[in-house]
């Protein structure tokens, strides 16, 4: 391959990547649905394999796991959803009666006093925060009350997850069939490693998030934080986004405490609780749940999280890290293949 051809190939790959990224951005909602189905398929695949090991065919195995998992999930949601909704409604009331505006002004005063040496005299945080919180709470209530849209989304999600689980093997075979003979063995290995990297990471991070949600809820209940259940749940979800999520959850917890009590007394305690949970997560929970092989450099993670979030929101942030893992697997395998073919003796 000449230098000119190589440059042409690289330019073509970059152009194709750009077109693909643009297309994905324009059909973001569908991509998000697909990614969510993929997420559930990765979570449930080991359970389906375990049922299949009992000599039950694949389709009934998927149905059994589906019934147990989504039935359990629906049961859990039916129990906790009214509780969460009432907490959200209560928060909305606080926002509307101006309690939050007062708290934000207090925070403003607190910050300007401490940052006066920087020349900070006046912050206009109140209207901005009020708008953000109002929009966020409205969105949560709208999602929950938009029954038709929600049902349609859930049905689509269930159908696509079902087929992804049932036909995973044949989909993989079809993909391999398209590969030229020269790439057959490499494609098998790449697919296996990608499946492993994504599956291990997603299962690990979800288990980690669930553990953190439970631990945080319990810890916040111990320090008597108002809306401890809502904040604990939020902390669990926020934990899905490495590095950026946990501090966000701490800020939300402190903010809710200030708004509800009108004082700053609980803030140091909240900060302490979140620092302890963070350390416990790093030292105990994550080593047990997330495989070391899928971990990346923090700087890489932060940048890909921002890109993923910009493109597909929270789902994009969740998949950003495994996508980097996939790119790493592809790069490593292709480079290893190229160097092996260069060093191979000619018969």
């Amino acid at each position: 391959m000449t230098v000119a051809t190589r440059i042409l190939v690289v330019l073509l790959i970059i152009a194709l990547g750009g077109v693909l990224l643009y297309t994905m951005f324009t059909i973001g909602a569908i991509v998000a649905l697909f990614l969510l189905s993929l997420l559930f398929a990765f979570i449930l695949a080991p359970a389906v394999n375990a049922v299949e090991r009992l000599h039950i065919p694949r389709t009934p195995a998927v149905l059994i796991v589906f019934t147990l998992f989504f039935g359990g999930l629906a049961f859990l949601v039916s129990i906790i959803a009214p509780f969460i909704l009432s907490e959200i409604m209560h928060l909305q009331e606080i926002v509307s009666v101006g309690q939050m505006r007062r708290a934000v002004r207090d925070i403003e005063v607190f910050i300007t006093r401490r940052l006066s040496f920087f020349g900070v005299r006046r912050l206009t945080l109140a209207p901005k925060v009020e708008e953000w919180v109002g929009v966020a709470l409205d969105n949560v209530v709208n999602i929950a009350s938009g029954v038709v849209g929600l049902v349609l989304f859930v049905v689509m999600l269930l159908i696509s997850t079902f087929f992804l689980l049932k036909d995973a093997r044949s989909l993989k075979k079809s993909l391999v069939r398209m590969m030229p003979n020269g790439f057959f063995e490499t494609s098998l290995t790449i697919l296996y490693k990608i499946e492993r990297a994504i599956g291990d990471y997603l299962r690990g991070i979800l288990l980690d998030a669930a553990s953190i949600a439970v631990i945080t809820t319990f810890a916040l209940w111990l320090i008597d934080l108002p809306y401890y259940f809502l904040v604990g749940l939020f902390a669990g979800f926020a934990n899905l986004v490495p590095y950026l999520g946990p501090p966000t959850a701490a800020v939300v917890a402190a903010f809710i405490s200030i708004v509800d009590t009108g004082r700053f007394d609980q803030v140091p305690l909240i900060a302490f609780v979140f620092i302890v949970i963070r350390l416990f997560d790093d030292a105990v929970v994550q080593p047990l749940t997330i495989s070391r092989s899928v971990r990346q450099h923090p700087l890489v993670i932060i940048f890909v999280l921002l890109i993923g979030g910009q493109l597909f929101g929270i789902i994009g942030m969740l998949f950003a890290v495994p996508v980097v893992g996939v790119i790493r697997v592809l790069g490593t395998e292709i480079l290893a293949g190229v160097s092996a073919s260069r060093s191979s003796p000619s018969p």
Partner: peptide, 18 residues
């Protein structure tokens, strides 16, 4: 997989995966 006459399945030095 289908291989045509003279087509290599793998070459010496290739990493073996199958």
């Amino acid at each position: 997989r289908t291989y045509m006459e003279g087509e290599p399945v793998f070459r010496a030095g290739d990493r073996g995966f199958a």
